[in-house]
Amino acid sequence: MANDILLEIKDLHAGIGEKEILKGVNLTIRKGEIHAVMGPNGAGKSTLSAVLTGKPMYEVTSGSITFMGKDLLSMSPEERSWAGIFMSFQYPVEIPGVTITNFMKTAINAKREALGLEPMKAGDFLKLLKEKMAFVKMRPEFAKREVNVGFSGGEKKRNEIFQMAMLEPKFSILDETDSGLDVDALKIVADGVNALHTEETSAIIITHYQKLLEYVVPDVVHVLKAGRIVTTGGRELVDAIEKNGFDQFQ
């Protein structure tokens, strides 16, 4: 069974500066599982995704995170990406002057270089790009657009799932991916996430709302409150939260 564990968080304490936000989080994610972490504002959801991806400014004061047997916390954000971690950002960043094509080519070839591989051939790259854009129903002209510049909320999230499809992560973090999306955009995002999911890959959906969880069904649901996981259960927890909110959990 131990070999099935993809990610293990043990007694994680973390925050910004002097302020402790996560106060002892424990979480074990096995291959093929989709977990949801739900919680009210200020519970520490953003801090959890920031610590998993190595965002500067966030400090881990104690505890550990092991990813595929390696110490995740000693790795830089780019090393985590190369190892197979991906985050779909709550607020994807605009990068004027850098096209999606150039951005993804740089990302993919950086990973290949880190793994000791030759850069991808231009033709192969463009074929992959087209295939993945079609997969998330992105119009081909987006390849030449500047990253997220002038994109609607839905287009930005779709671009996140497109990047996820390009990078083929082993572990994906969907950080409030459902916020600001209409039902059509939500379905496209959810279809993408479901189609990319395999028995070897896992995901964690960090969310305030249950919207996305209607389309991507989690195996395990955690309630995060005041920096701790206070309850863990199955799909039924989502319904309980929808009915009675977060106050019922202490």
Partner: peptide
Amino acid sequence: FYMRSRGI
């Protein structure tokens, strides 16, 4: 950070 999280 956004770029680094993509492996750049």
